[in-house]
């Protein structure tokens, strides 16, 4: 049952990721990206990472993609015209991606420790949010505050970049 759910959502995710790369209209690409993120959140649920799954839907499928669609509409992008395809670009891209994939599958196939099934949790009803929260505020308190400053800096930077005339 779990394996079936894993495959359903993985294949859904990869199919929509293909759509992101190969659809011509930027709006279709963005909608495919939303579905990729939602399917990825479902895969996170099969890994018992409920908090990360919820954050994935809220932040990525919600906030980030709204920003993307907003910019696409602001710039009024049309579907790309069929430009002349450069064979060298496709050859180079195919080689890099294929080589990367071959390297990964070789490592996975040759490493027996990766073929373990999921170990049982000692307490299946353990509160996942509490675990993340304890780790975040106890062990990673300083990085957490630094990330807050980073968000503030990003906000100020965006406001500065969006001014009418850039100095």
């Amino acid at each position: 049952m779990q394996l079936a759910l894993f495959w359903i959502f993985s294949i859904l995710m990869l199919a929509f990721a293909l759509g992101v790369v190969f659809l011509r209209n930027p709006v279709s690409s963005a909608m495919s990206l939303v579905m990729t993120f939602v399917a990825l959140a479902a895969v996170f649920v099969t890994l018992d990472a409920f908090f990360i799954a919820v954050v994935q839907v809220l932040v990525y499928a919600g906030a980030v993609m709204v920003l993307f669609l907003f910019i696409i509409m602001l710039l009024d992008l049309r579907a790309e015209k069929h430009r002349k395809v450069r064979p060298s670009a496709w050859l180079g891209g195919g080689l890099v991606v294929g080589g990367f994939m071959a390297a990964i599958s070789q490592v996975i196939a040759g490493w027996s420790a990766l073929h373990q099934t999921k170990p049982e949790l000692s307490d299946p009803s353990f509160n996942d949010v509490a675990g993340v929260g304890f780790t975040l505020f106890r062990d990673f308190n300083l990085p957490f505050q630094i990330i807050g400053v980073l968000l503030l800096v990003a906000t100020v930077g965006v406001v500065l970049l969006s001014r009418k005339e850039l100095k």
């Binding site: 779990q2 894993f6 895969v43 990964i104 996975i108 490493w111 990766l114 073929h115 099934t117």
Partner: peptide, 9 residues
């Protein structure tokens, strides 16, 4: 059950 290799792939 899916294994770690499935997820990494």
């Amino acid at each position: 059950m899916p294994t770690l290799a499935h997820y990494l792939l």
